[in-house]
Amino acid sequence: MSNPKNEWPLWEVFVRSKAGLDHKHCGSLHAADSAMAIQMARDVYTRRQEGTSIWVVRSEQIIASDPTEKGSLFEPADDKVYRHPTFYELPDELNHM
């Protein structure tokens, strides 16, 4: 069988569904190089007008936060309600501030 080193590298695919929106992660695929990755991403992820632009990036290049550090990373935001506009009670006469 094939040598694992001969497997095409893995790429992550991000698609912008229409002008004005963010590119959003939609999956991954194997391709020999970036040009092939873009072409394959078009065939695999945008067969029904799902995209107007594609980004691809080698999966090994993505640095992700550690799920076990979820608490220390994100919990501090839980008790900072004053960062949201709804925290402040203002008189109705102000209308929409």
């Binding site: 069988m1 094939s2 694992p4 497997e7 991954s28 695929l29 695999v44 067969r47």
Partner: peptide, 30 residues
């Protein structure tokens, strides 16, 4: 043609999902 291409696409979505669990594409193909 479109339908058969879709089946190929479905296979690829699923292989990619399986690979997130630490198995390689070649292992699955084999």
């Amino acid at each position: 043609l479109a339908k058969v291409q879709d089946e190929g696409g479905h296979g690829l979505y699923l292989y990619a999902a399986a690979e997130t669990l630490g198995t390689s594409r070649d292992e699955m193909t084999e």
